[in-house]
Amino acid sequence: MIVRSRAPLRLGLAGGGTDVSPFCDLHGGYVMNVTIDKYAYATIDDNGSDSVEFHAQDADVSQCMAPDEVDLAAGPLQLMKGVYRRISEDYLSGARPAIRIRSSSDAPPGSGLGSSSTMVVALVTAFAEYFGLALGEYEIAHLACRIERGDLALSGGKQDQYAAAFGGFNFMEFYEAERVVVNPLRIKEWIWSELEASIVLYFTGVSRSSAKIIDEQARNVRHGQSDSVDAMHRLKSEAVQMKEALLRGDFKRLAAVMQAGWVAKKQMAASITNPMIDELEALAFDNGARAAKVSGAGGGGFMMFLCDPAERVRLVRALSTAGGSVYNTHFTSHGASAWKSG
């Protein structure tokens, strides 16, 4: 039996960072995001031996070992190994099956589109299908968070896992004790289309480690650094405003909220922006952009710009001269899915 799965990557529209502990535990966090037609993929099948095989196809790294030798060492195979061990312990009574696991993604690690967390969701979804586990969206996302933040001790928030599991436009609430509430939004078709036409997604060509940025952000909250904490409260408020602007189709307010959110986000940690990002932002505003932000933790990866659709071509041409790549993208309404093949 062969099982395949895919889970969509996401764009953070507002509130990103308020889903990270300890802020969300102390104050509650709000995030507004949407999934896009870029995916993380996983395949599981019987490898015909008594070993377990891991293959991270993007990195072209593979390893074959005895099931009881699977470790959690850092590297391209860590996410797959983490999912394998947690599923084995929690759902297979400790039995470690002899299988082959392969993964790939439409976006590189450090892109800011939630690629690592989305990969964990794709892997958990594939395991659930392969072993017949009755896991809903909340269970899949919670398990993915537990693996990343607990078992693997990787820094980060929770929005990526829930976005990948649920799909579509979602307003998310994050509270202490790992309580999460996902509110799917019914976006009118014309608003959906207008926003798609207004967004320009640009890859800077520079991947970055989100962990250092997130760790700096968390330290600022723990130490009560007022500028950082106040900025996060503004981001939380702007997530609510973004939700309202989307539901009403108020694009002038939407652009203003996105830009205000980016200004606030830059105050959360010094490493969120840099001269390259500042120059790209200035170039974009000189060529029709109404709002700009870095997707994800910051520091590099993908940038997102909002413009009048009539100015899109001019903006794309300008950005294409800056050394990165413009990506065409569309929103998706569905979250992670899995199916049997053969």
Rank of each mutant, 00 (worst) to 15 (best):
P22I: 10
C307W: 02
S295C: 14
V257G: 09
M304S: 09
V240D: 12
H142S: 15
A245N: 02
V313Q: 12
V181Y: 06
L185C: 12
A239R: 06
L247T: 02
G150R: 02
C307Y: 03
G261R: 07
H330N: 08
L26Y: 04
G168S: 00
I2M: 13
G156R: 00
M65L: 15
G323I: 10
I191G: 04
S62N: 13
A177H: 14
V240L: 14
I213C: 11
G342T: 03
P184Q: 05
G167T: 00
T329R: 03
G167H: 00
G12M: 02
Q63S: 13
N274W: 11
G48E: 07
K212W: 01
M80D: 04
V34S: 14
W262I: 01
S115G: 07
S209T: 02
V182I: 15
I44G: 12
L185V: 05
A284D: 04
P76I: 01
S341Q: 10
G205Y: 03
V61K: 12
S49P: 06
S155I: 00
V20I: 15
K212R: 08
I147Q: 06
Q63T: 07
Y30F: 15
R208K: 13
H223S: 08
E238M: 13
G288K: 13
D25K: 08
V34K: 09
T43S: 14
V257C: 07
G299M: 08
A98I: 01
E178A: 15
L92F: 10
K252R: 07
S88N: 04
Q57W: 00
S210L: 01
L72K: 06
I213W: 07
M304A: 07
R290H: 11
P108W: 00
V316I: 15
G288R: 09
G136A: 09
C64D: 06
A256E: 14
L154K: 01
D230E: 15
W262K: 05
T204D: 00
S193W: 03
D215F: 02
Y327S: 07
A291Y: 02
S104H: 06
W192T: 03
E196D: 09
K265G: 08
M303I: 10
A292K: 02
G288S: 13
E69T: 04
Q259N: 15
A122D: 13
G112F: 00
L133K: 10
G335Y: 09
I213D: 05
E69Y: 01
D50R: 11
Q259F: 12
S320E: 15
K340V: 14
A297C: 11
M276P: 02
A74W: 02
V294Y: 03
Q78T: 02
T273P: 05
